[in-house]
Amino acid sequence: MAEAEGESLESWLNKATNPSNRQEDWEYIIGFCDQINKELEGPQISVRLLAHKIQSPQEWEAVQALTVLEACMKNCGRRFHNEVGKFRFLNELIKVVSPKYLGDRVSEKVKTKIIELLYSWTVALPEESKIKDAYHMLKRQGIVQSDPPVPADRTLIPSPPPRPKNP
């Protein structure tokens, strides 16, 4: 498992989800996306790292990780979609929203964001059938009461590029 010189996936993600960030830092978020696209096993490794951050007990770390996940879905293409579309990863999201697992200890903000993301992918990526299976299971369980208001036409439009720093 060769790593690119300099920053690794883990170091980009640590910076992008650092709880001491005052706001979402798109330089690091896009850096993580670019690193995924550079590495042979980028998608496989990155979803494992993301799942861990999304399950963070610190709300701000988890929220930033979900923003990173959303950006990766927009910028890292089918290889990344295929990894997210496996139950192995989807189960990690389900654990966060389900009261049988971590749901009781997780903030509503994090749970809502996960449900919005899952729903938006069922619309934007109908070929990823396991995402639909996971989402419909959450509905059957009553964890999702009704589809969230997500503008489907905007779900997979690439994220904005990092803003240049002021000189």
């Binding site: 496996k86 139950f87 192995r88 989807l90 189960n91 389900i94 654990k95 389900s98 049988k100 697992y101 396991k130 299976d133 996971a134 299971m137 369980q141």
Partner: peptide, 15 residues
């Protein structure tokens, strides 16, 4: 083969 066995092992979380 690897992909097939991965597919077989990929299950939705029991609820």
């Amino acid at each position: 083969l690897g992909e097939e066995s991965e597919e077989r092992d990929d299950h939705l979380l029991p609820m």
